[in-house]
Design a protein around this nucleic acid. Sequence first.
DNA 1: AAGTGGTCTAGACCACCGG
DNA 2: CGGTGGTCTAGACCACTTC
Lengths: 253, 253
Amino acid sequence: MGTTQLETVPEPKYWHLKTVLTEALDSEFSVGEVLPNERDLAARFGVARATLRQALEQLELEGRLQRRRGVGTTVAPPRVGVAVGTEQHVWPGAVGDAWRPVDCAVAVPPAAVAEALETGPDDQVHTIRRSRVTHGQPVAAELLYIPASSVPGLPAIDAPSGATLARAVLRELQHLDLEGQDRAVELGSARADDAKELDRLPGAPVLVVTTRYVAEGRTAAVSVATYRADTCRLTFGDSGGVEIHHDPERRAS
Amino acid sequence: MGTTQLETVPEPKYWHLKTVLTEALDSEFSVGEVLPNERDLAARFGVARATLRQALEQLELEGRLQRRRGVGTTVAPPRVGVAVGTEQHVWPGAVGDAWRPVDCAVAVPPAAVAEALETGPDDQVHTIRRSRVTHGQPVAAELLYIPASSVPGLPAIDAPSGATLARAVLRELQHLDLEGQDRAVELGSARADDAKELDRLPGAPVLVVTTRYVAEGRTAAVSVATYRADTCRLTFGDSGGVEIHHDPERRAS
DNA sequence: AAGTGGTCTAGACCACCGG
DNA sequence: CGGTGGTCTAGACCACTTC
């Protein structure tokens, strides 16, 4: 007999819940609208709050919802496209890049970064913190690692304010000839400091973009940027962003 | 910047647990080794299983652990770098690309894809399913949408087997002049069919790579590829992958 | 059958935000 | 202050793999 095990798999409640909620979001809610609170929703669907939360978590992960402690759960706007790969071969800090220098310090980088930079495991490098804002919302936090050898012309330590120092280092970096760059994207969870900067809780899912800048045949700088995974769609490529995915009719707010 | 507001924030237990476990993984476990089961671990740390699981979930998200129902929790190998952006401007299905055609059908694409393809909301397009395997493990599942107008020379419906048909469509596609391509990366959760192909549970976190192929001034094809977020690091760029992140000393198995 | 992770419950308390 | 989401508990049962 054609034992196509069709209904052999009882769909988990939270999964079914997520489907129902997705459809409700598509048809009955507008962007920015606040949902009933979790206790009410759970009661309405006849499940425990934990189960309801499992569904909400997934929807937040997919960028459909936004939850804020003490406030409530709201319908999230479509993800913003954030250009990551358009500016082919440009140093960080060039003309009009999207980043704002926050701070600068001299510190020992993580082992993996040190390896890429070919510095000793205990060598210090310039460590610049930058932040990226789109539509008034912080979308990414970055740590830029620049060994002293990449900015030979930098005046000695008279250390102006952090951000000003950062700008000076970046300015100095432009003098090098950028030969190429590698990028990698992976999923991570926000460290405490990044989370704070991104206005999220620690552990929130982030897209980690690691960039290696190559000049004079070696790695001249390394950038580790963490983007909010819930609100961002990273765009690469020749022209503008792709407007795909996350289709359906959402009423404008 | 050392504004350490120290004891204002009681660290959540699962967060602290995650830290402890991370350190343990770095120093006391080798890749592939199986951890004690969740009930034992929870007891050992004096927390409820749900709390322990919250920590394990994060570690799995970060690619440090692999959990399989009925089997156990094992220490995951470092993420594999998967090249996504090296082959500049190449049609899918070209010479030696990493994908294996699985099936082909004619279907109405999702609304957002139809919009990009500039087909009507009810028009059917060739829909090719492909699968990508690295190191013997499935890492990605893809849906390729190709309107009939992009493969005018395709012989009429005599329909050989699915995979063979897929190859025929892809072969036909190569005749077009590829002018450019856009890519976007975002976080998603695996649909049931993708999850099955990726050997994961539905809802597992995935990196969704959407590619728009441009030829003759219009979108000739759209690809939506979902990569396992736990095991993959997507690499873009000129040369080989970046070997950064996820540093520390892991004993080889 | 035994042991694993996955789901679910019904509570409790806490941290945060707003009026 | 009241209401929200975030954390945590101690149990139960289920689905799956392995022997």
